Amino acid sequence: MTPDIFDRSARRQRRDRAAPAYAAHDFLRATMLDGIAERLDSVTRDFDDVLDLGSFDGAFVPPPGARVARVDPGARFARASRGVQGDEDRLPFADAAFDLVVSAGVLDQVGDLPGALTLARRTLRPDGLFIGAFVGAGSLPQLRAALRTAESERPVARLHPQVDVRSAGDLLVRAGFALPVADVETLDVGYPDLFRLIEDLRGMAATNILVDRTPMTRGVLAGAAAAFAASAGPDGRVRERFDIVYLTGWAPDPSQPVAAKRGSATVSIAGMLGRRT
């Protein structure tokens, strides 16, 4: 068994602390949910049973007429969304229980991401759809640079490993999804200082939960804040970047078309998302 790189207990605690004021920091997940809604709009089929995987406050709105089950690693978020508490790689649901699984903003904090995607695929009925979104590689470059400057002599791992879009697509294939699609969209946010960024990260339960984490000293924090401020633009704000990776895949079914080999460019994203008739 692959050892956890994330501290599950710390993750639950951070989510519980973030829950009461989460609405003030939900812009990143709101962007992801908008992207998921756009992708669902391209699907001309009905869904009866939906799983909201990583529900936060329950802001995801299921398709009309669909029943929705929600699960979140944090107890407070699970209660707020009227769901159950559980981890993405330890799902408490039967195989083939859903025909749509949606996940926004949590998969980048799962140590066994291949296992979580495999379980998501197993909970789907044949020809069921998975759509996920998470923060991917390339995100938070200004924060990373500031920390490198502040800890240049003794660097410490403070930010999570990130999955790039190509690797994300490969993980869909590995998990057994048919017609996999992975794409990325970028969101830029202006911050007046490092502390406002940290406030947002805490508020969205996105701070460091690595098993091997080291407390940050005041000196390191001050150095990072100065380095962060040095990258401000003419308006006095630092433009921080979030790369959102979107994943789409179908549970295999004999009715599905066969995707062409990688690089042939004969299967469009619209065709993969659309309902086969």
Rank of each mutant, 00 (worst) to 15 (best):
2 T>R: 06
3 P>Q: 12
9 S>T: 15
16 D>Y: 07
17 R>Q: 13
25 H>T: 14
26 D>G: 05
26 D>N: 10
39 R>M: 11
41 D>P: 06
43 V>D: 04
43 V>R: 15
45 R>S: 14
46 D>L: 06
46 D>Q: 15
46 D>Y: 14
51 L>C: 03
53 L>P: 00
54 G>L: 04
62 P>I: 13
62 P>E: 08
63 P>S: 10
63 P>G: 04
72 D>H: 06
75 A>P: 00
76 R>H: 05
78 A>W: 03
84 V>D: 03
85 Q>G: 04
85 Q>Y: 11
88 E>N: 02
95 D>V: 02
95 D>P: 00
97 A>L: 01
99 D>E: 00
99 D>L: 08
112 D>S: 03
114 P>M: 00
117 L>T: 07
122 R>E: 10
123 T>M: 04
123 T>V: 14
124 L>Q: 02
124 L>K: 03
128 G>P: 02
133 A>C: 11
135 V>C: 12
142 Q>I: 05
143 L>W: 11
154 R>F: 14
158 R>A: 09
164 D>P: 04
168 A>K: 09
168 A>E: 10
170 D>H: 12
171 L>S: 09
179 L>S: 11
179 L>G: 12
182 A>F: 02
184 V>S: 12
184 V>P: 09
186 T>I: 15
195 F>W: 13
197 L>C: 01
199 E>L: 11
216 M>F: 02
216 M>R: 13
221 L>S: 10
223 G>L: 15
232 A>E: 02
234 P>H: 13
235 D>H: 09
235 D>G: 13
235 D>A: 05
246 Y>D: 01
263 G>D: 12
263 G>L: 06
272 M>D: 11
275 R>D: 05
